[in-house]
Simulated scan of single mutants.
Amino acid sequence: MSHDKQVALVTGGNRGIGYELTKQLALNGFKVILTSRDPKNGHEAAQKLKQSNLDVSFVMMDVVNQESIHQAAFTINEKYGRLDVLINNAGVYLDENEKLLDMDPSILEKTMATNFFGAYHVIRSFIPLMEKQGYGRIINVSSEYGAMSEMSYQGVGAYKLSKLALNGLTRLAAAEIKGDIKINAVDPGWVSTDMGGPSAPRTPKQAAESILWLATIGPEGPNGGFFRDRKQIPW
């Protein structure tokens, strides 16, 4: 591998855990691409980090729009010619406390579109950039709500199913990828963000630190695992 700076991409990087991940990766010497579906918020977030002399740039990408993903992949290939780390962080939490079979099906469809298909299309579009150099680290920001044991309890059904599917995708992709490319899923815990709410016990910084180590694991590191605080947890 050349000694150029490694390039990392974070989806949904304009706030919460994604913003913190972007910041921490940049502090750790990465050239970071912050993506967001909202150009104004994404641009502002990137500018704020740039003011601290961090190597962050903004690329518009809406993970529910395949054309938008392809355009971003094309832009990044043209500009950097490589991608070393991909963090699928963009996610939605649309469930009210209602039963899966009673809710408006569009809630499940929208949740799957972002949390599952979004990650799927992003991985498919960016893996060729990793294969080009035989190296890559992919981290899917999942949730303990995606653990199979959680399916025995009602509530938050759309979100749970989307993360269960994301976890399955993580394992299937890990079984398929070749070379020194690794893909893992992470449960960041309950974090005080717009999604987690103010009473959550963990800060975005704590969550980011538990995810960052997977961005820099060596060739002997895990592949196809599910982690919380650097410890493997059951699927």
Rank of each mutant, 00 (worst) to 15 (best):
G146E: 03
V10M: 08
D102Y: 13
N65C: 08
I107M: 07
R230T: 12
L21N: 01
R124F: 10
F126Q: 03
F227L: 01
Q51K: 15
S36L: 12
V156S: 12
E131I: 11
S106L: 10
I123R: 05
E209T: 11
G155H: 07
S152K: 14
R202I: 04
I127N: 02
G42E: 02
D180I: 06
Q71G: 08
M148E: 15
K79F: 09
G134E: 13
L21H: 02
R124E: 12
S57I: 12
I138W: 04
N77E: 15
L108V: 09
S68A: 04
Q24D: 11
K132R: 15
G18T: 05
M1K: 15
G179N: 11
N89S: 08
E144H: 12
K40R: 14
E150P: 06
S57L: 12
M1Q: 13
K23C: 00
S52D: 13
K50F: 13
L214H: 08
E20M: 06
M103G: 07
A200Y: 11
K23S: 02
D84A: 05
G197L: 00
S142Q: 04
P105V: 04
S2L: 13
Q232V: 11
H3E: 15
Q6K: 11
I139W: 01
A215F: 07
M112L: 11
G29K: 05
K40I: 14
V141S: 07
A165M: 02
W235C: 01
K132W: 14
Y120H: 13
M112R: 00
Q206H: 11
K178W: 14
G224F: 01
T35F: 07
N28W: 10
R15Q: 13
T11C: 02
D84C: 02
F227T: 01
P204M: 06
D38P: 10
E144Q: 13
N89A: 10
H121E: 15
Q133R: 12
T111H: 06
M151I: 12
N41M: 08
E44A: 09
A72K: 04
L212D: 01
L161R: 04
S192A: 08
L172Y: 15
G81K: 02
N14A: 09
K31E: 05
E67V: 09
T114H: 08
G157H: 04
G218M: 11
Q24A: 00
D180W: 10
H3T: 15
A147H: 14
I138M: 02
S68Q: 05
M112S: 00
N97S: 09
I69G: 00
Q71Y: 12
Y80G: 01
F126P: 03
S210P: 09
Y120M: 12
W213M: 11
K5R: 11
W213T: 08
A165W: 07
I17W: 03
